[in-house]
Design a protein around this nucleic acid. Structure first.
Lengths: 306, 306
DNA sequence: CAGCGTCATCGGTTTTCTCGATCAAAATCT
DNA sequence: AGATTTTGATCGAGAAAACCGATGACGCTG
């Protein structure tokens, strides 16, 4: 039988990798520096390898193998945690802390509605939130720093399991008095000749808006070099007559354009929406919780979209 | 900080799941029965759950959660092993034991050549072999019971990383005096009217042979209910005039048809071959070794195919 | 009902883990 | 340069955990 590294030692290892400082790493592990030092030395002795380059002056320097081991240690710890988490989840559903990532074009408009509903439904649920772009969230999901993502599907989170929860329609936002303001609905083709304002690169809404207009990403290169950093600034830009844009109905329903005088018209056409959904690691210990959360989200989204 | 299960406890858990007997499980873990029993109780206490259904009379019965935890424990142990293995692999490349799976239409013809070459090149390598069908091997790869597969690509080992090592051409095997025996090469179309003998279902060579003849699996349903269980029996069947077949060049080069009087002609056409390759789990601790092995295989295959 | 097989429990021993204190070396300050 | 501080390694002692052998409890079997 192989000699396995102890979870403790792995904790020391990854803590050291994160702080690059024995004392602080020890503090993070709630042990003394001597304990952490001895633990790491024991690990090196057990594996019969050098994890740290102790010749390298003052600072903590990992060997190439050391960095590899840090990575593997992290995943090993995560899989150990999955065992206890699965047990906890079975003992009391929706119990422990849940780290959820949300994209900025959903979060501010759905969460204010979602959170109270969840507090009522699952009083013991502790929901930690992080707002970031799809790519960033996907990275954090795959590296076990997030448990659950709320974003637009399909997302290229390799290997993730996803579940759709709602269709979010696109709304065309026009400055007051715009030539299209008279229409009930606006077909995507009518936007081809308009100056279409978009979020800056990295926001999935940008690509989805372009796609629904039949354009490729990069096709339309922010002619004036101005892209908005949030839906709120985007709305302001439209209001100052710089152009038109597409907003998610969710944001409109949450009142993003209130008081701006903008003209809001649904985008016409069959595919004039994007899919919102949850994504998580397959084999995650609490998939049952996630599915329950998803069905709650379906309800909340329906309400939020009127 | 979460309380993690100890690797020891997880070992006890999976050992018990495998033997369903405390005494034998303890023996497998090289501890006494009392130790294993106490360890499992401690685990149940730590996780505050019931893993075993102790009301269930005589035999060891797991709760549903218990079975889930066994599974998660297995993967957690595997990821811990990956840490030590990565260290060992870095210390001495091609060092430790390597569990390789091979399909039956490659193994018997390539391994006799491969093994001596590997022994020379990597004297410290300990290669454990298992011969089985692609599906079985893929299952064992994904459940960490095998490290490396030698098979025909593409294989549907979900999530596996693969590397091609050779093209193995198809050879048409005809009974002596067959009407096609005069040809230099035989086009796939000429086989459409022949009685094509194949391996039984489950062997990938069967599907590949059908595909290269432009037939779908199931198209040709072993009309007489007879399918061979190995290439050797297949050769015997052709020799007794029951029909014709396709053999991998590798098998022919290894002399599978020697002494049978069979007429052997290359199959003509651009796609008249299949790809042999290695497959392994991505993030496996010894991918460097696997790649080195792959390049050795390229050489051995070239030689084996003349 | 006696005997056997199986798992849980108990006391004692060995091993491992951890702490506080101390040391040596490098970095920083004076 | 010399003193001081910072940082990681080391040491001895105490605490905790793992393990073993023996024993107990319970159900199954003959």
């Amino acid at each position: 039988m192989t000699l396995l590294p102890s979870p403790q030692q792995l904790r020391y290892l990854v803590a050291l990798a994160e702080s690059r400082h024995f004392g602080r790493a020890a503090q993070a592990c709630s042990v003394t520096q001597s304990t952490l030092s001895a633990g790491l030395l024991a690990l090196e002795r057990q594996l019969d390898t050098h994890i740290l380059d102790r010749a390298a002056g003052r600072h903590v320097v990992f060997t190439p193998l050391g960095l590899d081991l840090v990575d593997r240690g992290r995943t090993a710890l995560a899989s150990l945690e999955a065992v206890t988490e699965a047990a906890m989840a079975a003992r009391e559903p929706m119990g422990g802390p849940l780290r959820m990532g949300v994209i900025p074009t959903i979060g501010p408009f759905l969460l204010p509605r979602l959170m109270p509903a969840l507090r009522d439904a699952f009083p013991r649920l502790k929901l930690y939130l992080r707002e970031d772009t799809t790519a960033q969230l996907a990275d954090r999901l795959s590296t076990n720093r997030l448990d659950l993502l709320l974003l637009a599907l399909p997302c290229d989170c390799s290997g993730a399991e996803a579940m759709p929860v709602a269709r979010d329609g696109f709304i065309v936002a026009l400055p007051p008095g715009h030539r299209l303001a008279g229409e009930e609905q606006i077909p995507a083709s009518a936007l081809a000749t308009e100056r279409l304002l978009l979020l800056e690169d990295g926001h999935c809404l940008r690509d989805q808006a372009l796609a629904v207009c039949g354009l490729l990403a990069g096709d339309r290169g922010d002619q004036d070099g101005f892209a908005a950093t949030s839906l709120h600034t985007l709305v302001q830009m439209v209001a100052s007559g710089l152009g038109v844009t597409l907003l998610p109905r969710l944001a409109v329903a949450a009142g993003i354009a209130q008081g701006t005088g903008l003209v809001l018209r649904p985008l016409a056409g069959a595919g004039a929406w994007r899919t919102l959904g949850l994504a998580w690691r397959p084999n995650a210990p609490r998939t049952a919780d996630y599915r329950a959360l998803a069905s709650h989200l379906v309800e909340t989204c329906r309400e939020a979209l009127q």
